[in-house]
Each structure stands twice: as structure tokens, then as C-alpha cells.
């Protein structure tokens, strides 16, 4: 998570300001306690309880690790998220490079095209992919008309469809984080490399790619976490044939009404996300400590 520098205007510090400071903070704390902290606590508590009798048990966890379906769901979630992360970063990189470096008047258009879909909401975009990928959808229809295929290709209700849909959902965020990172690279470094005889390809390989690794890492992490926690896209494009943790949690709550087990699944998803965030934080910390070492050595 990003941190905010607390460099602030110097108000005259004094006791009344302090009190009013805590006072204005109270509503936020209250809302987050009642509707976030307490529910999270309740959910963790529920995971250790039998849904009917409310007596303490580890059964829900045993079931998660032994019924096969749950671990398979976890595995599918991870594979899907990794694929989305890679697709987003690979597809986003050229666009991000263009956005970071171009000064042409087309830049604004590309920027708008790349980011505007984010405003459209997940449903619209997923619906668009449904129309395109369905058995009787755009692509299959066209290929059948052209006589390329006899029976429709299996393009929807599977891993492929979900990865396509989620890549589309997450791509703008990947592009943004990559653009920021590439913008931070001094363009003179590229010019310097060119003056030293490096070809475009060599400049990309030896200068831009290594220096944008932080952006690539953050794009991968953002894409992974967004994909792993997505609900609507896997629900609509994966359907009953391709279930991930998010859709399985929904089923447990609303169809099977097994709260304890739903809680365990939610906790599994949460832990996976926290582990990924932790990796990101560790990477960031290592990088900044390396940087400060380097600066310390130079002085």
C-alpha cells in the first residue's frame, strides 16, 4: 500500500487542536469499526465454528484441505491470476512506454482509449466479451460463416475466457503503474546509450527494461491481486464450469448457507492476497535499502 508523507503545514500545536483532531477522526473510526473490523472478527470467529450448533471446531479447515474441490479452486484462482498478471504486464508495456515518452498530439487519444474503459464498469465489459466469445457469439459466428470451422470453438465458460475478461478489466491499472515507472527514467539515459552506439533493441534491453523493473513488479502485483479478488468477471465468463475462490465463496454463502466454510474460503483468499502484498512490500523495502546503501557508499 502506498504511504503518505506526513509533511504538513505547521499549525500552531496546542491542546484544543489535539482534542478536535481526535473528535473529527471519530466518525471514520466508528464506521470502520462497526462495518469492517467487527465483521472481519466475526468472520474469523465463524471459521472456527460449526454453522449449525455454533460450537468450536476445526472441521471447516479440515474440510478445506481434504475435500479436493477447495484446493482445486485455490489452484485455479492462482493460475488464473498469474496468467492475468503476465498478460496485463506484457500487453501494457508498449502502451505505457508510448504514454511515458511520446509528445505527439495522439498521446491524449491513446491515454483516453487506454483508460476510459475503466469508467464503463466491469459488467459492460464482461458483457462485451460474452457477446464476442459465446458459442453463438461474434467470433464463432464469423468463423462458421466463413466456413473455417464446423462447430463452435470453446471460447467461453473456461480459463481462457476468464483470463481475457480479467486482463481487459485490469489492463488500465497495469498501464498506469508502468507509465509512472517509465516516466521516472531519465530520457537522457536512452540518448546516452544511443550515442554510445546502442541500437533501439539494445536500449530497450539494457536500459529501459532493467530500470523499469520496479514498475513491472508493481504491475504484476496489482494485476494479480485484482484478478484473484475479482468476482463478476469469473462468475459471468467462467460460469459453473470454471469456478474460482471468489465464486465458490458466493455459492457457499447464498446457496449452501454454510457460513463457517465460506469464512474459511474467504480467509484463504485473504491470506493469498496478503502474502502477495507482503512480497511487494518486501521487494520495495529491499530496493530502497539497496539504494540507500549505494548512496551511502558514494559519499
Amino acid at each position: 500500500m502506498s504511504t503518505i508523507a506526513l509533511a504538513a503545514p505547521a499549525a500552531m500545536p496546542g491542546a484544543p487542536a489535539r482534542t478536535s483532531g481526535y473528535l473529527v477522526l471519530a466518525p471514520s473510526c466508528l464506521v470502520l469499526t462497526i462495518f469492517f473490523a467487527l465483521p472481519m472478527g466475526t468472520m474469523i470467529g465463524m471459521s472456527f465454528m460449526d454453522a449449525q450448533t455454533l460450537s468450536p471446531t476445526l472441521f471447516n479447515y479440515q474440510r478445506f484441505f481434504s475435500d479436493g474441490l477447495s484446493l482445486a479452486g485455490l489452484y485455479r484462482t492462482a493460475v488464473m491470476s498469474i496468467l492475468v498478471a503476465v498478460c496485463v504486464t506484457v500487453l501494457g508495456y508498449p502502451v505505457a512506454y508510448y504514454l511515458a515518452r511520446s509528445r505527439s498530439r495522439w498521446r491524449a487519444l491513446v491515454f483516453a482509449l487506454a483508460l476510459a474503459p475503466e469508467l464503463a464498469g466491469v459488467v459492460l465489459r464482461t458483457y462485451g466479451w460474452l457477446i464476442i466469445l459465446e458459442d453463438r457469439g461474434f467470433i464463432n459466428d464469423m468463423l462458421t460463416h466463413l466456413g473455417v470451422i464446423a462447430s463452435p470453438l470453446p471460447l467461453s465458460k473456461n480459463l481462457f475466457a476468464v483470463v481475457v475478461g480479467l486482463t481487459h478489466v485490469v489492463l488500465p491499472f497495469g498501464i498506469l503503474s508502468l507509465t509512472t515507472s517509465i516516466q521516472g527514467i531519465d530520457p537522457n539515459l536512452e540518448r546516452a546509450a544511443q550515442m554510445l552506439g546502442a541500437s533501439r533493441l539494445a536500449v530497450v534491453r539494457h536500459i529501459i527494461l532493467p530500470l523499469s523493473v520496479p514498475g513491472i513488479v508493481s504491475s504484476l502485483l496489482i494485476a494479480f491481486t485484482m484478478a484473484a479478488s475479482a468476482y463478476a468477471t469469473p462468475a459471468l465468463l467462467g460460469g459453473a464450469r470454471f469456478k474460482v475462490l471468489a465464486t465458490m465463496i458466493y455459492e457457499q454463502v447464498l446457496f449452501y448457507i454454510d457460513w463457517g466454510f465460506a469464512a474459511v474460503m474467504a480467509i484463504a483468499l485473504l491470506i493469498m492476497m496478503l502474502m502477495i502484498s507482503f512480497l511487494g512490500i518486501r521487494y520495495e523495502a529491499r530496493r530502497s535499502s539497496r539504494r540507500s546503501n549505494r548512496e551511502g557508499g558514494a559519499s
Binding site: M1, T3, I4, L6, L25, S28, C29, L32, F35, F36, L38, P39, M40, T42, M43, M46, T225, A228, S229, Y231, A246, I249, Y250, V253, W259, A262, A263, A266, I267, L269, L270, M273, L274, S277
Partner: peptide
């Protein structure tokens, strides 16, 4: 305090949803 205020960001929406419906 800031970390606390921003902590819901690191919990997936679907998990927050489950937690709230269970709690209620």
C-alpha cells in the same frame, strides 16, 4: 491511524462482503 484507516483496502471486496453479511 492512517494505516488503520486504509486497512480495508488490502481486503478483497468479496471477503468484506462475506464478513458484513455474516456479521449482520
Amino acid at each position: 491511524i492512517m494505516a488503520g484507516l486504509l486497512s480495508p483496502l488490502s481486503v478483497p471486496q468479496i471477503v468484506k462482503g462475506v464478513a458484513i453479511v455474516l456479521f449482520l
